[in-house]
Amino acid sequence: MRDFRWPPPPDAGPRTYGPGPSAPRTGRPALPEPETELVDTPHGVRLERLITGSGEPVTVFAHGLGSGIATTRPLGSAVAGRKIFFQFRGHGRSDAPVGPWTYLDLARDLRAMADLGGATRALGVSLGAGALCRLLVESPERFDRVVFYLPAVLDEPRSPAVRQRLDDLLDAIESGDESELAEEVSRELPPAVRNTPAGWAYLRQRLEQLQRDGLAPALSTLPDQFPVRDRSALASVTAHALVIGCAGDELHPAPVAEQLAQALPNATLHIYDKPGVLWTERADLRARISDFLNG
């Protein structure tokens, strides 16, 4: 039987317990984080940004609640052209102005990054998908192509489980207890991945970033909000859309993805059959996203 343990084995493990091989196995370390920059925006909030690739088209990537650039980069690895990754307010090195914040504030962050970089395409993950929805309600013709990966909320508040997960993460960061924080971050991983070299590498990188930059307490009000008052407002969106959901994901219910795809006039929907898609279906996911955005 294998279980999650912290701190990790000094030789990068994982260790296994019980019957079967018990020797540590060396894992490939996580890639070092690339150098980012702080960018001034028209609405007065400096945001952390990373630009990779070159040429056209330009795609902006918006991360999920409590995540950041590192977790969205794999989604763009096969996408052509220039790619803009950024941190929403309260994440990473981005500013954390006085809250409370709304999805309108997040949409402003996303719009600023898109406008400054000349992006014609966008991908939003969870919270980022909500910000993208709000931006499109305000400017339905802003993008040519959009991807919504694991949308979590549309026109109704998120489940209490989301608020609890975020509160637990914020408390663990505030406590300064590395083991407690590691336990919370490990919940982001599928159980089968938690004691593997890839899981340890992800965990180390996330811990380093959260311990260095933290998360703004003002983020705690976002789980009670939703991006659009009425999903019918998305009927004017002109962009071609790809909506990707997942069955069995408590934090990103598949019905939300289905509702979003129905509300958008030019949408394709794909639902994976189990959570942990970025770990279990990474090649298919990357190909699905790049085929759509490169089209």
Rank of each mutant, 00 (worst) to 15 (best):
R2N: 11
R2D: 13
R2M: 12
F4N: 01
F4D: 05
P9C: 06
P14S: 00
S22V: 15
A23M: 13
R28P: 12
P32K: 04
E33W: 09
E37M: 07
D40N: 05
R46L: 06
P57W: 02
T59I: 01
F61M: 05
L65G: 10
A70F: 07
P74R: 05
G76W: 12
S77I: 13
V79G: 02
G81S: 08
R82F: 11
F85M: 06
F85S: 03
H91C: 02
R93A: 09
S94T: 00
S94N: 06
G99P: 02
G99Y: 03
W101Q: 03
Y103I: 04
L104H: 14
L104V: 14
L110D: 03
R111A: 15
L116K: 06
L116C: 00
A119N: 02
R121V: 04
V125H: 15
G128K: 02
G130L: 03
L135C: 04
L135D: 03
L136S: 05
E138H: 12
S139I: 14
P140I: 05
F143N: 05
D144V: 08
D144H: 13
V146G: 04
V147M: 03
V147I: 01
F148Q: 10
F148W: 11
A152V: 14
V153Y: 07
D155Y: 02
E156H: 14
S159A: 08
R163D: 12
R165T: 07
L170R: 10
I173H: 13
I173K: 13
D177P: 10
L181E: 01
E183A: 15
S186G: 01
R187A: 12
L189G: 08
V193K: 12
R194Y: 05
R194N: 09
A198T: 14
A198R: 15
W200Q: 15
L203V: 02
L203F: 04
Q205E: 11
Q205C: 09
E208N: 11
Q209G: 14
R212I: 03
A216I: 02
P217M: 00
L219K: 00
P227D: 08
D230R: 03
I244L: 11
G245A: 08
C246W: 00
G248K: 06
G248W: 01
E258H: 04
Q259P: 10
L264N: 06
P265E: 00
Y272P: 12
K274P: 09
L278Q: 14
W279K: 08
T280Q: 15
E281P: 09
E281A: 14
D284R: 07
L285A: 03
R286H: 11
R286Y: 10
A287M: 13
I289C: 08
I289Q: 06
S290I: 01
N294F: 08
